[in-house]
């Protein structure tokens, strides 16, 4: 059986030796049938490898052939089959809520806290986030104040962002970002959290402000989300630290990774992962501090496999 990943790809491919499954059906003895099939498969593999070798030789002599093959052989990925979206890569019109922040070049000042009654992982992740976001501080969440009140207090103390880590049953399940003073508020669900110590060969981060890579935030909504992440980090990174924070959007899942790059030789660059890793999925965007809904993920949005919102 072809593996799940290459299923679609294999189907389209026509190899020189096809497996005669129908012919094999007429063989009644199971063991004989298995042997026959193994033999056919073996032949199929051998012919495939032969064809590849020949192709390699041909392409070595004529590089145009390779270019042609690469140009014509485009795998049909889900991203390539994306439903048409008129907002993709259209220049944003006017100003958004972040305009003032970026224009004034304010240094970010971020407050990190947890949901009420946090016990376990939330504190570990908050340690990590303090490490990741320069100019952030952690305040333990009490019982008294609501998010809106906290946002008000942060405004008084000139914070630029508020991050709330949601925890349920001792597991982190979400992150809320509030841009201050006037919103927007975004809630992401958080999955696949791996702490640095779970990542083999991880490095230790330094206190330099990192470079930021935002990948594939292409729609109008995506650009808003990108601007939010941009607003969390200082606008001028310290390149000395060689640290990179990546937020990679693929099919509306945002993958968070942190690396340090190492120049081992002149041509290639080595990467060392610093951690943590987690995956975010946008659930809702609200105007102001949790007021009118700008966008909300509904379960029926998952019905369309090829429609992406970021």
């Amino acid at each position: 059986m072809p593996s799940r990943k290459t299923k679609g790809y294999k189907k389209r491919k026509t190899s020189s030796v096809s497996i005669p499954k129908d012919a094999l059906k007429s063989v009644k003895n199971k063991i004989k049938r298995e042997n026959l099939l193994a033999k056919v498969r073996d032949e199929h593999n051998i012919s495939k490898h032969k064809a590849r070798k020949e192709r390699l030789k041909m392409e070595a002599s004529d590089p145009e052939l390779k270019a042609e093959r690469l140009a014509s052989n485009i795998p049909s990925t889900i991203e390539a089959m994306r439903v048409y979206d008129e907002t993709v890569n259209v220049a944003a019109e006017g100003e958004d809520e972040f305009e003032e922040y970026f224009r004034d070049k304010k240094p970010p000042k971020v407050l990190i806290t947890t949901s009420k009654n946090a016990r376990g992982e939330a504190y570990e992740l908050s340690d990590q986030l303090i490490d990741i976001i320069p100019g952030s501080e952690f305040v333990k969440r009490g019982h008294k104040f609501s998010m809106k009140e906290i946002a008000k207090f942060c405004n008084n103390r000139e914070f630029t962002d508020l991050v709330v880590i949601s925890e349920d049953k001792k597991e982190v399940n979400g992150l809320t970002f509030v841009h201050l003073p006037n919103g927007p508020t975004m809630f992401f669900s958080l999955t696949s959290l791996r702490m640095p110590k779970q990542i083999s060969g991880h490095g230790r981060a330094t206190e330099h402000s990192p470079e930021l890579i935002l990948n594939n935030f292409s729609t109008r909504l995506g650009s808003t989300v990108g601007r939010l992440f941009q607003s969390l980090f200082p606008q001028t990174p310290e390149f000395v630290g060689r640290q990179v924070v990546t937020l990679h959007n693929q099919r509306d899942f945002i993958f968070f990774r942190r690396h340090r790059y190492v120049f081992k030789e002149t041509e290639r660059v080595g990467l060392q992962e610093l951690g943590p890793q987690f995956t975010l999925k946008l659930r809702r965007v609200q105007r102001g501090i949790a007021e009118e809904m700008e966008w909300e993920h509904r379960p029926d949005m998952d019905k369309e496999k090829h429609k992406f919102y970021l």
Binding site: Y84, D85, E86, A92, E93, G94, E95, D96
Partner: peptide, 22 residues
């Protein structure tokens, strides 16, 4: 009226227009 740019927009279209459809 556009909130982000403070502008006004005059939009004319025929019935059945849907910009989400290519």
């Amino acid at each position: 009226a556009a909130e982000d740019s403070g502008s006004l927009k005059d939009i004319s279209f025929s019935f059945g227009t849907n910009t989400s459809v290519k």
